[in-house]
Amino acid sequence: MKVIVESPVAKEGVELLKDEGYEVVEIYEDDPEVLLEEIGSVDAILARPTGARVTAEVLREGDRLQVVSIHGVGCENVDIDMATEEGIYVLNTPNANTEAVVEHTFGLMSNLSKRILEADRATRNGDYETRDQYIGVEMKGKTLGVIGLGRIGLEVGRRLGRACGMEVVGCDPYLGASEFPDEIEYAEDLEKIFEVSDFITVHCPLTEGTEGLIGQEELHKMKESAFLINVARGGIVDEDALVDALKEGEIRGAAIDVFKEEPPADDHPLFDLNNVIVTPHTAWLTEEARRRMSTGAAEGIITVLRGDIPEHTVNQAVCEE
């Protein structure tokens, strides 16, 4: 059996594949053409969502290909429909990064509300004496609005409510009021979230329905004192509208880990704003998450190649055939 590891991953997963006796080819090129050259002789691909695109052509040409295992959650780099048509499993590791993203979200919120990055820049610049300007606000007693209550959104809502004494209100089109946990108040629609929240955090996937979900109008509905956090996907928040809203004081601040285009342009207008925190799509990136993703993705490949049913299948239709 031969497996392509398409991007650098933690060594633990690669070792699992080798221990199984597979030939492992590590090609770190973001180029479908490179994948195409090898694909004829390959049984599985371990890929990162930000790596090379696993195109329809790659999937069609992969005569022996049984499984594409994603090191991460998002599968937008894989042509899922074609994979299903070809009977190829697409797997992901949905739980591996949950903890890291929850912690990052918590960090972004507390760094925004206490203006830690602005204060750090001022202190290093020798502006210690300007410190009276950096008046923060407390999270305790404030309202947190969570958009999208999947694994991450649920954890963020539950844990921040409990740990920081926040009121939490959530909205998710796939979760009815009766399915909400006790700690999170049910909001029927986003209007309610925009109206009551002091902090709004986005944890839904990027789909046709969520693209541009937060635009000019939505930002306008938020409190002027509100903070917006996006660690989900860049396209969900309209960046031009966000920049305008931040400049005009329609909201107080934002923390952004994901961008519409990645990598973002060097002169992205968000980078000039003081009331913003930007991190380079690293919310998920911890030693533990890398290890769990790498071993999780490898275990999925091993399960499929052994002829068993894998745990986290994105294209369930394949299992049903």
Partner: peptide
Amino acid sequence: EAVAEHTIGLIIALTKHIVKTDKVT
């Protein structure tokens, strides 16, 4: 409350390299 929340912010700023990655980005 303010100091406790600041402390938490600082801890995660360190463990998740938030200040450093903001500057780099």
